[in-house]
Amino acid sequence: MREQVGLADLSYRAKFDTKTAPSRPFWPLGRNHFLIVGEPPLSPPSGATDVTSVYAELLLAGPSSTAVLSKLTSLNLSDAALPNLFCAQASLAHAHTIFLREDIGSIPGFRLLISREYAESAWEAIVHAGHEFHLQPFGLGALELLRN
């Protein structure tokens, strides 16, 4: 993952969808539309809808992650168009996806929120597209290692 690209399933993370700007860190999805994503347990802000089970969360990280994604989405993923800690929405392998750019140190990382029913098929598409870049699935242990 440090040299090529890796893919992890982080669907366990909590997600809330709300129309009023929350007081804690959030991802702006549109005018008056916000998303909160975090490690559980996470309490929902008032008026928010719990969408933890709605979205699967995949983490694609590594120097080649942009190259893998550009085979599956028309979204402009360059550093200028989607800098670290910015988000965007587009189709990925024909399924609507929320892209959260969250680099791990200097390694580019994309958290991909995909409607749960499409997630398995999207995982397969990403693995297939990543074949030429030697994409490897990874677990939480490797993620810890990378962070430290």
Binding site: T49, V51, T52, S53, V54, Y55, S115, R116, E117, Y118
Partner: peptide, 10 residues
């Protein structure tokens, strides 16, 4: 009104 598509969540 705030509509959330929760189809996949249930």
């Amino acid at each position: 009104v705030h509509i959330t598509n929760v189809t996949a969540g249930y």
